[in-house]
């Protein structure tokens, strides 16, 4: 377990690459009422791996857009206006691309690294696990 904890503290990526780490971070974000940021981050990764020829991919893009971008969700509120416009434009023209959520994901990731992740490493949830 010690190795786990050292790895989780190394970077957000190493935390999220580990099943137990991602689960514990999710529990923490649920309590902080911003679990959507993590779900969005994973949804972007999942979307990037999808086949653009599959009709399902457009439906998933629409679902991500509706759930996280076009409302006042915790994700939408943290994204730059230009980033939201870009995604909205892609959706309007139905021009789906594997990288269409990359900028939005990068913005959310930076915010998670600077805020939620730092808070997590000093939280009782993490320290109790230690």
């Amino acid at each position: 377990p010690d190795l786990h904890l050292v790895r989780w503290a190394k970077s957000l990526h190493s935390l999220l690459g580990d099943q137990d780490g991602a689960h514990l971070f999710r529990t923490f974000l649920e309590r902080e009422k911003c679990v959507d940021t993590l779900d969005f981050w994973f949804a972007c990764n999942g979307f990037r791996q999808m086949d653009l020829k599959d009709t399902k991919t457009l439906r998933v893009a629409k679902a991500i857009h509706k759930r996280y971008i076009e409302n006042y969700s915790v994700v939408a509120r943290q994204l730059k206006l230009a980033t939201k416009f870009f995604i909205r434009d892609c959706m309007k023209r139905q021009q789906i691309d594997s990288t269409m959520f990359d900028q939005a994901q990068a913005e959310i990731q930076t915010l998670m690294e600077d805020n939620a992740y730092q808070m997590f490493l000093t939280s009782d949830i993490y320290l109790d696990y230690v």
Binding site: F42, G46, A63, K66, R67
Partner: peptide, 20 residues
Amino acid sequence: IDSEDDLLQECISSAMPKKK
């Protein structure tokens, strides 16, 4: 047809780390 929520959940789950 899967609902929007199911599709989204499936997409999120596909990217979650698997048990080593």
